[in-house]
Design a protein around this nucleic acid. Structure first.
Lengths: 110, 110
DNA sequence: TGACTCTATGTCAAATACGACATAGTCTAT
DNA sequence: ATAGACTATGTCGTATTTGACATAGAGTCA
């Protein structure tokens, strides 16, 4: 596991504890989390681009402001499915969702 | 909504009831379901390619044969997240997962 | 400063997804 | 046709995810 990846995940609050504990994440788990981070980031970008508040987006989604905040923070309590559904609601295409999933966080490692 | 798409979804057991009811699915919901169908199909392909039984894959995933069957059937009770996680476990890359999500069911409308 | 807007975080009951099990279907070989 | 291997489907108790609410933080303006 590259340090850059660790830093990136840690920055997003995904660190579980020590580095040793972190390394217990399998590659698959790490990939899944990175996908979620990428989706979360994309969600924020789409919302900002449309000048919507979290409250407004929540209403569009039939959800709540706090859940939108958690989505954008890629909180462990939000599912990949909710992120994808929300992106679609914001007008993202399947193609774009696929691209986001494949490419990782738009914000590269520092 | 094109009839081809309807047929494809219906074939996979996603029909909710009448055609009229079906049309109540929003474009976003339909897209989400199609993504799941694509992931499910890809999962089956990966499993077959590695000559694994559902039972064997289940063990790898820490799950059960019946859940694997439901995954491959894109049963409404399986989440997109579980499908993606399983694909990764089978060795699929993020890039491939993204491609599958973007492109839709590998099996085209009849 | 305080009021106001927006976002972040913690908690909870209800909804949904989960693995597990039982059992039914399907296919192949003998 | 029976057996055996694999897959499909239904149900159940539990675990996770959800929207909602409360409340805290951060920023802006007067």
């Amino acid at each position: 596991m590259k340090k850059a990846r660790y830093d990136r995940l840690k920055q997003a609050g995904w660190t579980v504890g020590t580095t040793a504990e972190f390394l217990d994440l399998t590659e698959e788990e790490a990939a899944l989390i990175e996908m979620k981070l990428a989706l979360a980031h994309s969600l924020r970008e789409h919302r900002d681009a449309q000048h919507l508040t979290q409250e407004q987006l929540a209403k569009m989604l039939g959800s709540s402001q706090s859940r939108v905040a958690k989505m954008e923070a890629a909180d462990p309590s939000v599912s990949m499915e909710l992120l994808v559904r929300s992106l679609l609601m914001l007008g993202a295409t399947r193609k774009e969702v696929g691209r986001v999933m494949a490419r990782g966080p738009a914000v590269p490692a520092a």
